[in-house]
Every structure is written in C-alpha cells, then in structure tokens.
Design a binder for these strands. Structure first.
Lengths: 249, 249
DNA sequence: CACCTGAGTTAACACCGTTTACTTTGTCAT
DNA sequence: ATGACAAAGTAAACGGTGTTAACTCAGGTG
C-alpha cells in the first residue's frame, strides 16, 4: 500500500486543521476554556464560524481534537526528557516525572482540559485503537517495564492481593503485553502492576492538587513536597533517591 | 447581641436563596456545568433571569455559592460517618475515607466543580476567615491529630526532611494550632504533617482518577484498588488494616 | 468543456449573561 | 392608617454564543 503524494487541496486542508487547533489553544491559554468558541477561532483566522463545520462536526469534537493534540505534546515532551536522561532507568523515570510536573504547572489550562474532563473513550480497549490519553499512560508503563527488567524490585506476591484486584491486574498485564507488543511489560507480576498504578496515583494526585491550588492551604511552594513524593515512590521501586537528586531537567 | 426574629421578607429571601442553589444543583447533575445558566434556573423557578441579580451579582458567584454548599454537604456527610464509626480513631479514619470516595463517585458532577476548578481564595489564610474548601481539609487534619494523640506513629525526624519542605510544614502546623484552637494538631511534628499531606495526595489522586475514568485503561472496578491504597496509607499510620476490613459504611 | 465536490459565505434561529428602566409589594416610622 | 422607602420582580434590549440552511465560488476530474 503506497501513499500517494498529497494533492494541493489536501495540503491546504491539513494546514487549516493545524491552524484551527493552534488558535484554539491560544484561546484556551489566554481566555480559559470558556474563551475557545467557534466564533472566536474563526474571527482570529479571518473566517466565519460556519466554515469551521467543514473541519469539525461541532465545537465539542474540535475541543476533543485539541485535547488529543495536547496529550501528544505532553507525551512527546516527557519521552524526549526521558531519552535525554540516558539509559539508567532510574534517571529516566525521574526525568519523566519531573517533566510531567513542569509541563502541568506551566500549562494549567491544558492540564485542566486533559485530566479533569470525563473520558468517553471507555470500553473500546480491545479494538486495538486507543486515544492519545491511553498512549500517555503507556509511556509510564514502559519505563516501569524497563525498571523491572533491569532490577526487579520487591512486590507483594499475587496470593496476598485481594482476589478481585488480582484478577483485574492480571487482565491488565495481559492486555499490556498484547497491545503493540511492549517488551518488559508482558511478564510483569500483578504486584508490580499494582505498584505502577499506586505510583501513578501519587504523581497525578500531587500534580493535580498543585495545579488547582488545593495545596496552598499548607504549602506555598509545592516543589519540595513533590520531590519528597517522587523520592518515596522511587524507593518503593528499589531506587536510591540520592543518586538522582539535583539533576537538571 | 441578641438575634431578632427574622422578618417575613427575610424568611422568603432565605428560602429563595436556598431554592436557587437547589435548582442550580439539579441542573449541574442533569445537564452538566454548561446547563447551569441563569435563564435555566429562573425558568425552573418561574422567574426572570434578571431577578436572580437580586441574589447574586453574577453567574460566577452563584456557582461559587453552589460550590461552597457542596463542600459543606460533603464535609457533613464525612463527619457524620466518622461519628457513627465510634471512638477508635482508625475506624473513624476508614469511615471518612470511604465516605469521601462514595460521595465523590456518586456525585461526579459535583466533584468536578469542587475539586477541578482553580481556587481563588489563596493568600488570605491569615485573616481568620476561610472558605468551605479549607474547612473540608481541616476535617481530615483533625482526625490526623486524633490518631497521633492516641498512638504516635513513626515519622521522619525534622532533620531528615529537606529544609525548604520542613520550613513550610512548620508554618503550616503553627497555623493549624492557631486556627480555631484545634487540639492535637498544634503539637504535630513536621514529619507527621508531611505524612498527612502524602496520605491526602493518595486519597485525592485515586478518587479523582476514578471519577474521571482515568483508571479504566487498567481497572474495571476501582473499589479493590482503593481499598488497597487505604490499607497502605493506614499502615503508614501504625494501624492494622485487618481490623477495619469488611465494615459497612 | 461540463461537471462535481469541497470550502467558504450570509442569514437566520434559539440560546446565553448582563444592564437599564420600570412596576409592584412588603415594611416601617410617623 | 398612611406615606415613604427599599426590596423584589418584570420587560426590553445589547452583544455574544452554537448550529443550520441555502447559497456562491473555485479546484480537480471525466
């Protein structure tokens, strides 16, 4: 299956699609989510609002498209930071988590759109197609697999987990191994999968609380607390936090 | 200072204020946040939208009022569950966390409004007045103080914490002791304050992820994972999770 | 060249928040 | 009891919104 070269019209259309999301994002940042309207986007593009219906069936799906692009950007930034960090899985994990926080704190409007809206793409995990949000989660699953392969850390044995939890985690690990043939994650014990989710809960929790200002009642600068949480998580994964302190992003 | 009996007009006004928030909430639940509009509220009340300006200066502050009421409801429900759980601080903590999750999962629209909008009430902690959201956080701080007074758990000594974190936590503990003269929290070591925040991050993280469906990629039923997280947090606080399993809410 | 399709326009409809000027009605002091 | 006053509510308007329908115009294809 060879891809034909894109015709002139196709190129123009792609550029317009790109500009739409670019303008939508500028509005999101400067005017908050209520500012991203069809008419405002069209106005900034020198167009009519009705013309945007050639590109998206309605505002909601336009915003969904923006959301997907933001996931891609965030994921790319995290992956890049990971790769810049070298080959030590610990250093890579630290770089990823720090980049996730830095991106979220500097992009609160985007974070809010991505992580605080109900995700409709629910049940269709088996179809093979999955959204940008899922790809985001897999990036963290991958580094977890790396970490485990390099140096397995102690995890609770399957027998100790509540059966209902073990069952779900088992299925999750299986799907992880199938989807995209991700090496390292297919042989994870369910206890490691639980640890993965637990660490993710921790990272998401502190970053979301910081972004929304819900820690201001206790902390004026969340940075040190974030570092402490990251260190604690790393320790659970058999890493020595002192090795990764004071590294630039 | 004796409070005069409320005049007829005052009673009617109070009832109207109440009905406004009631209707606003019904719209929030059934139509999502975009459905709570002045015109829709007025329509359901048999009024004109302009009349609502006698009660709130604009839509935004009406929504803020709704948000405060929701905080109060959630806090009350959690406090009630705590008191029903008896006097064992461990049982009380479990009841609170489980009620927090149950309320959040059954009220996703409300949760979204409360916990996923930037909080403007930032710097005015020292003025003595604080919002409903702050009162919510204090409820969890209180049980933490109870727990510590009953049986101090091991916490990292102040010298081991990063200085920038220790400094902030110290100020936090001091403020906690002053505000409302809360017994038990004023003498908390800063390591305990860190543990408090860490546990809160964990609870908020898993509940928010569940509410937004961001764990569907791994878990079809978050209940067991939540229980595991709660047990892990309890263990850090010197509690024996097996004592609190299988208790009704 | 005729044809068709994709991109864009204009105009309209039904909503929305907010303001203004106006009417009604409860309360309170004389 | 009555008159003054302020609170509560109304109608009308302004500018903004998403969305649809009918229309024009230009690019690409037989």
């Amino acid at each position: 299956m060879t891809t034909l070269p894109p015709t002139r019209r196709e190129r123009v259309r792609a550029a317009t699609l790109d500009e739409i999301l670019q303008v939508a994002r500028r509005l999101l940042v400067h005017e908050s989510i209520t500012g991203v309207t069809l008419r405002a986007i069209a106005r900034e593009m020198g167009m009519t609002a009705a013309a945007l219906y050639r590109y998206y069936p309605n505002l909601e799906s336009l915003v969904a498209g923006l959301c997907a692009r933001l996931y891609d950007e965030c994921t790319t930034e995290i992956s890049d930071a990971r790769d810049r960090a070298g080959s030590d899985p610990g250093a890579r994990l630290y770089a990823m988590c720090r980049t996730f926080r830095a991106w979220s704190v500097t992009h609160p409007a985007e974070f809010n759109l991505m992580f605080a809206s109900p995700v409709p793409e629910a049940g269709r995990l088996k179809t093979g197609e999955f959204g940008a949000g899922f790809r985001f989660a897999l990036t963290f699953a991958d580094i977890f697999g790396e970490l485990w392969q390099r140096a397995p850390f102690p995890v609770p044995p399957e027998e100790e987990l509540p059966p209902l939890l073990a069952e779900q985690l088992h299925q999750f690990v299986d799907e992880l191994g199938q989807q995209g043939a991700r090496p390292g994650t297919s042989s994870l014990p369910v206890g490691a999968a639980q640890l993965y989710l637990s660490c993710w809960v921790r990272m998401y929790g502190i970053v979301a609380l910081e972004v929304y200002g819900h820690l201001k009642f206790a902390l004026s600068n969340v940075g040190p607390m974030f570092d402490a949480e990251l260190d604690a998580a790393a320790q659970q994964l058999g890493l020595d936090p002192t090795r990764y302190r004071d590294r630039p992003l």
